[in-house]
């Protein structure tokens, strides 16, 4: 059965270019963004539970793989591939929809639009902690950007 949730993918050339770019700069930018927007909102005990673990976020249509680790309660980029505790796979639009609270993560998961591989307990901890965090300004910016980009297609 095909998903009924609207889908939007980046144009194929974006992914082709993304796959040729070095991965570290994007991971550095992403980890910096996490530290600026989320780190202070993450409870210390949660960061301690995540300490030392590596996470990989695959943005399929952008050809990108963002890798970072939690070290000393900070998000730090990871250059070389180590076995991550969690690997997420989705397209950029779905990640943006999740971050903007426009989509429900379980629904994306049920529809195979969000693939999560690895430690389920840590995945739940991350998901539930993100659900607890209110970042209305960042979400507002994301929502506006998504509206400018136009509606997703069903």
């Amino acid at each position: 059965m095909k998903s009924s949730i609207p889908v939007r993918k980046l144009p194929a050339p974006v992914g082709a270019i993304g796959r040729r770019l070095p991965r570290l700069p994007a991971s550095i930018a992403f980890a910096t963004g996490l530290n600026l927007t989320l780190r202070r909102k993450f409870p210390a005990d949660v960061l301690d539970r995540l300490e030392g673990h590596t996470f990989v976020i695959v943005v399929e249509d952008a050809g990108m793989e963002l890798r970072f680790r939690v070290r000393n309660r900070r998000f730090v980029p990871v250059a070389r591939a180590t076995e991550p505790v969690l690997r997420f796979r989705a397209v950029a639009w779905d990640y943006a929809s999740l971050a903007a609270r426009e989509a429900d993560p379980d629904t994306l998961f049920f529809n195979r639009r969000l693939v999560v591989e690895g430690d389920t307990e840590i995945a739940l901890l991350v998901k539930n902690t993100l659900d607890t965090i209110d970042i209305p300004r960042t979400r507002g910016i994301l929502k506006r950007a998504m509206r400018v980009a136009g509606p997703a297609r069903g």
């Binding site: 059965m1 195979r112 307990e121």
Partner: peptide, 30 residues
């Protein structure tokens, strides 16, 4: 959660609970 494993296998996405195979999902399954 500690007993749950999601694993992509050549035969599909498998969910296991305490090692017991709960289900195996093909590309079109939810």
């Amino acid at each position: 959660a500690k007993a749950i494993r999601w694993q992509q296998s050549p035969r599909g996405l498998e969910s296991r609970l305490g090692g017991v195979l709960i289900d195996r999902f093909g590309e079109e399954d939810h």
